[in-house]
Amino acid sequence: MAKAFKYGSRGITGSLHSAERKLLRDLFADIIHMLEERAELHRLPEGLDPLYALTGMRPADLELPPIGDPALARLLPDASDDPQVAREHRRLTESDLIGEKIDRLREAQFLLETDKIVLDPAGARRFAQALNDVRLVLSERLEIRSEADSERISQINDAKDVTTPEEYLGLVYNLVSWVQDTLMHALMNAEY
């Protein structure tokens, strides 16, 4: 079983067993893949003013396709109810947001190469962000839309009771939630 994160003289420490680490690494990899597919759509066509490539800006008339996968939409949500504001915000910032998320997920993958995890506050914050992205994606697959759904899923806590793939996913979701929650408390103790 995973050990709760805590703050002590060596920093923020916690540990995960090899099966848990493998599971989490696979989840990080899946999400990196989803984000990379979206990043592909940000590639600018050849023959465009090189200034765009240089600044990372996207011409206003070059629309990004809408996001079809609701799990990806949780990671890259609309910035406004006003479609025009949302579109503009996406055009200017989505590429950076994808990049920073991929960086944190890769860092988290690397962290889980060993069973003992030692973090400083900044590293713990980035790890928490990566875990949160995993939970957002799982929540969409589990169709957690309300507090009642969340409550129902939280009941799944024993591997012995798990009989369906959905229940297994629920168990994984609860594990990641628990790890993230202990990490937040350790981080709060470390920083404040």
């Binding site: 928490a128 957690i144 759904d149 993230q180 937040m184 408390h185 981080l187 709060m188």
Partner: peptide, 10 residues
């Protein structure tokens, strides 16, 4: 219903 209260506070 996903984001943890501890996380949002942080």
């Amino acid at each position: 219903p996903v984001n943890l209260m501890s996380y949002v506070s942080y």
